[in-house]
Design a protein around this nucleic acid. Structure first.
Length: 462
RNA sequence: GGGAGCUUAGCUCAGUCGGUAGAGCAACUGGCUGUUAACCAGUUUGUCGGGGGUUCGAGUCCCUCAUCUCCCGCCA
């Protein structure tokens, strides 16, 4: 493969005073009457390489006017740089302009705000911020597979299109090939889904959990990691219509095992990115969130808080703080409560456990008190809820009771319920919002800025 | 789904009491023998988000629609 900017930063000392060839884009240029500098980047590394050219080049005049964003091929000698800002540079013997960047290129040599860059999402990966974000996103994805593979978990590809309309995690996008102008009807006037592509109504998945639980009963420890879709009109910084989720599921395990794995995973991902993207992390720390590195390093060396819902509620009530929603046992925690707990009381990630049964999903295991279920949420400062999980109800009679209490139909869950008949055992799992993890690690505050082409209500332009 | 705010040059923004459009950056032109978001000088750039209303006169006040942003709910 051809030499890259990454290669040179790794091993420039060995290549000093040799001829090199590089391709890349002009990030910025500075010119004088008889010489000029081009900062070259080819996307393989966060840092640029400075190219020096002089008036002996036959296309010197053209080069002095080269526009930001143009692509070039450079031949030259790798030399020690007399300047202090870089250890080496390329003294060009020839520069070929392979693709001029036209003057209406929207990216300028200055900071743009993120809202503007969203309107040109097809160009924003060329900026420092978004190159750093998407590099980190890629590394986190890899680190997830590395973590679970090292722990002997099996990666399961749960379906994107689901025939189960009872995943229970939110509004769904329907998948159909029916002609919407001429919908087939049954005799009683309802839409006849037997004529649809799959012979039944189908949707995009909102969670792989029910499917992954099946595989957990075969492989013990499994995980799924893929896209999920929610058709909710959520207009917030931390919700997207299409996002990725990591969902491990572990047999013969309880809620404490669940929290142990979650905490170990979060720390593993952070450590991996700190070690493998130091330039990008330094950039975030300088330009996005000044306290980022300090906070992440602190987190690596501390234990996450673990408190029950009941204890947390007592802390909220005792705080005497004025909330818009008065804290009271039995209510769901509001965002203001969660923020107060994780940002002001504990000042670090906190697991909240054992929520009242009425505010949680049917599949969560009933505790012995008959009032709470073995659920756990991980709250982190700045982002809020990043993980939601639980120990699953493994007792068939209890599960059926919960299904009917919540007004659901047990026929819809027949194969899920069968797991409780064929070798049931206590098991648990959780869902980690991938983008929320990336937000937490980069300090970027809007989920739309950690997804290459974000989908949110009324927005699917790119 | 509920609420609040924003919208002025390519970008970031200012625009006072309602009196007829501004700055910085970018772009363009020229200068400069080691720059580092290079520097210096000059030039160009407007459907003031759309529509309607009040007024002698609206970027400014009122109504309405739209976009975007933020907050809440839902959740990851």
């Amino acid at each position: 493969m051809a030499l890259t900017v990454y290669d040179l930063w790794k091993s420039y000392q060995e290549k000093l005073d040799t001829e090199v060839t590089l391709s890349g884009w002009v990030r910025t240029s500075r010119t004088s009457k008889s010489f000029g500098f081009i900062e070259l980047n080819d996307g393989t590394h966060f840092k640029n390489i400075q190219v020096v050219f002089e008036e002996n080049l036959n296309n010197f005049d053209e080069l002095t006017k080269i526009s930001l964003g143009s692509s070039i091929n450079v031949n030259g000698k790798l030399i020690k740089s007399p300047g202090e800002k870089q250890p080496f540079e390329i003294s060009a013997s020839s520069i070929e302009i392979t693709g001029i960047c036209e003057p209406d290129f929207p990216l300028q040599k200055k900071r743009h705000n993120n809202e503007y860059l969203r309107t040109i999402a097809y160009l924003r990966p060329r900026t420092n911020l978004f190159r750093a974000v998407f590099k980190v996103r890629s590394l986190v994805a890899f680190a997830i597979h590395k973590f679970f593979t090292e722990k002997n978990f099996v990666y399961v590809h749960t379906p994107i299109i689901t025939g189960s309309d009872c995943e229970g995690a939110g509004e769904m996008f329907q998948v159909t090939t029916l002609d919407l102008d001429k919908l087939p009807r049954t005799e009683d006037g309802k839409i006849d889904y037997s004529k649809d592509f799959f012979g039944k109504q189908t949707n995009l998945t909102v969670s792989g959990q029910l499917a992954v639980e099946n595989f957990c009963m075969a492989f013990r420890n499994v995980y799924t990691f893929g896209p999920t879709f929610r058709a909710e009109r959520s207009n917030t910084q931390r919700h997207a219509s299409e996002f990725w989720m990591i969902e491990p599921e572990m047999a013969f395990s309880d809620l404490n095992d669940n929290m142990d794995v979650a905490e170990e995973m979060v720390k593993y991902l952070i450590r991996y990115v700190l070690e493998n993207a130091p330039e990008e992390m330094e950039f975030f720390n300088q330009w996005v969130d000044k306290g980022l590195l300090e906070r992440l390093n602190f987190l690596l060396n501390s234990d996450f808080g673990r408190v029950t819902y009941t204890e947390a509620m007592e802390a909220l009530i005792k705080s005497g703080k004025q909330f818009d929603y008065k804290p009271e046992w039995g209510i769901d925690l509001q965002t203001e409560h969660e923020r107060y707990l994780t940002e002001e009381v504990y000042k670090r990630p906190v697991f909240l456990t054992n929520y009242p049964k009425d505010i949680k999903a049917f599949y969560m295991r009933m505790n012995d008190d008959g009032k709470t279920v073995a659920a756990m949420d991980l709250l982190v400062p700045g982002v809020g809820e990043i993980i939601g999980g639980s120990q699953r109800e493994e007792r068939l009679d209890m599960l059926e009771k919960r299904i009917s209490e919540m007004g659901l139909r047990k026929e819809d869950y027949w194969w899920y319920l069968d797991l409780r008949r064929f070798g049931t055992n206590k098991h648990c799992g959780f869902g980690l919002g991938f983008e929320r993890m990336v937000m937490y690690m980069t300090g970027v505050e809007n989920i739309r800025d950690v997804i290459p082409f974000p989908r949110t209500p009324k927005n699917a332009e790119f």
